[in-house]
Amino acid sequence: MRQFLKTALCLAVLAGTAVYPAVSAASDLELTITAPAGAGGGWDSAARSLQEAMMATGEAKSVQVVNVPGAGGTVGLAQFVGSAKGAADQLLVAGITLVGASISNNSPVDLTQVTPLARLTGDPLVVVVPKDSPIKSIDDLLATIKKDVATTIWVGGSAGGADHILAALITKSAGADPSKINYVAYSGGGEALAAMLGGQATAGVSGYGEWEGQIKSGDLRALAISYPEPIDGIEAKPLKAQGLDIELVNWRGIFAPPGVEGEDLETLQAAVDNTVKSQQWKDIVKARGWTDYYAPSDEFKGFIASETERVRAILTSIGLAQ
């Protein structure tokens, strides 16, 4: 066993020397970013992208990513709030899903308890129907919902997630009772895609990027995106431009622990802001297919408060929160 480990180690060293290029560190920050999700997920890749960019730009000397998966991120958030209080070398990546999960899991902690540093990216959600559906526009969809909300079958990601919230908002603005929505939850956009292509659903909601291929090939018809403004390269128009007062962005941001203030906070804010404005970060965002949705600390703070209230209201209306 030890023999084998030694060999494995040697090989790993050989292969791994290229992973960490030496960087002339302009900063001596040694940071740890908590990704409240398992390796390979959205928050994990956001955390690792930020790690890559901060080290490439020299805004931090070393950055480590720690994965704390569980319960839509609430386990990681609770641990972060509990153990990192006041620590100026700890960061957390989180997003709108965590806002919803804190509410529907009745979690004792939520994002208003941590210190927002910056909003980073925001991806649009898209509303689609199968290609041979008689529904041609968002107005057709609204009419279908109004006619019979029960037989309008929606598919999308997990119950109480951003997809479910958007479907509920649309149902509500069609004049139907959102608590009567027939939303079939899947583990994510991928599994829901199969249900869309198989023709088992009336309409579907997912992150635009996840279904982009099928939309461009014509297998799915995109009716609208949930972003407030039109986006270059996306043909579907925003819901707002089509007369519905709905916007919902799947945003991700970076946070410091509670109790970090003064000079410590300024150092972290500067490091994050410089990283986000760098070319390296812009390249990563582009390569990953994300949409830039940057907002600085102050603006982000107000945004978190308003999102929390809004999400709570919608989840209550569909019966997922008290």
Binding site: L5, A8, L9, A12, V19, T32, Q64, V65, N67
Partner: peptide, 14 residues
């Protein structure tokens, strides 16, 4: 120690 080094330094998994 070997496992820790392989995971933390090479695979960047804490």
């Amino acid at each position: 120690v070997i496992i820790f080094l392989v995971f933390n330094k090479l695979l960047s998994l804490a």
